[in-house]
Amino acid sequence: MDSALLGSGLPTCSVNISINGENRSLDIPPWVTLLDLLRGPLELTGTKKGCDHGQCGACTVLINGERVNSCLKLAVSLDGAEVTTIEGLGTPDNLHPMQKAFVEHDAFQCGYCTPGQICSAVGLVKEGRARSRADIRELMSGNLCRCGAYSNIADAIEEVLGAEGAQPYKEAAE
C-alpha cells in the first residue's frame, strides 16, 4: 500500500523504517525528505513544514530518540531507523507529559510550531543537558515560534524537567 502511494514511475529505493512503533516497508524515490514522506504519503501531518531549510525547527521529530529536523533527512537514508513523530508521543485522550504541560501553560497559540517544539523538548529532556532556564532557552533556540509563546514553552519544559528529577530542577521541586 505504501509504495503505491509513492509511486509515479520513478526509480525507488526500498527501506524499512519504524514509524511510531509500526514497521513500514517503503519504496521511496531518493529525492523524498522524511518530512515530505510523513506529511504526504503517510498523512502524518503533525510534523510541520515551516521553511524546508532546517531554519525553523517546525519539522522536528525524534530519530532513534534524538531530535532532528526531518526536512534535512532524505527518507532513503533512514533504513532501520526508529522515527517518533508527535502522533507517536500521545493522543488527545492520552497526552504525553510534555504535551500536557504545553496545554496547561498555554505554550502555543496557533499551534503550528508546537509539534516541533514538543519533540524538541522531549529530546532536550533526554539529553540531560539543561540545568537552568537559560539552558532551556539556549538549547530550544532551534525551534522558532512566531506567536511568541517562548516564555510559556520554557515554563512547560521546566515543569517536566522538575518532575523528571533533573538537576537542579529536582532541588527546586523538593
Binding site: 506529511r39 498523512e43 502524518l44 501531518t45 503533525g46 510534523t47 510541520k48 513544514k49 513523530t85 508527535i86 502522533e87 508521543l89 500521545g90 493522543t91 488527545p92 485522550d93 497526552l95 504535551q99 500536557k100 504545553f102 496545554v103 496547561e104 498555554d106 502555543f108 499551534g111 503550528y112 508546537t114 509539534p115 514538543i118
Partner: peptide
C-alpha cells in the same frame, strides 16, 4: 480555561490548510 483546541494542537491532530488529502 486552557484552550479547548489545545489537545488537538499538541498531538498533531489539528489539520491546517495544506494537510488535507
Amino acid at each position: 480555561l486552557a484552550r479547548i483546541d489545545g489537545p488537538l494542537k499538541v498531538s498533531g491532530k489539528a489539520r491546517y490548510a495544506a494537510e488535507h488529502f
